[in-house]
Design a protein around this nucleic acid. Sequence first.
DNA 1: AAAGTGACTAGAC
DNA 2: CGTCTAGCCACTT
Length: 96
Amino acid sequence: MADLHDAAHQDAAHERVREVVAGIPAGQVLSYGQVAARAGLRSARQVGRILALDSDDLPWHRVLRADGRCAPHLAGEQLARLRAEGVTVVDGRVRR
DNA sequence: AAAGTGACTAGAC
DNA sequence: CGTCTAGCCACTT
């Protein structure tokens, strides 16, 4: 039965990242690298990739770059959502 | 198999 | 502050 689930379930890493992102409280943000560390991954790029594929039910807007900036193509939506949660955004950058 | 790509990061200047 | 470089890793061409 393992082989059937294997493809559908993707990787354990994938699932851990989902858990970590789902656990970020409203009004708080984490960098891709922080999520990676919490999920036991080696590279921040993997987090971005996973979110790009499967962010549908997650608060993906709480994950941004290490410098407090968000990914270029997401900036508009992401910043709007963060501001709606009470996050301080100054000149397109999140204040922690 | 080799090169290109991207929701990244840290360091150098 | 800013830009550039190199390192990173899974995926695509």
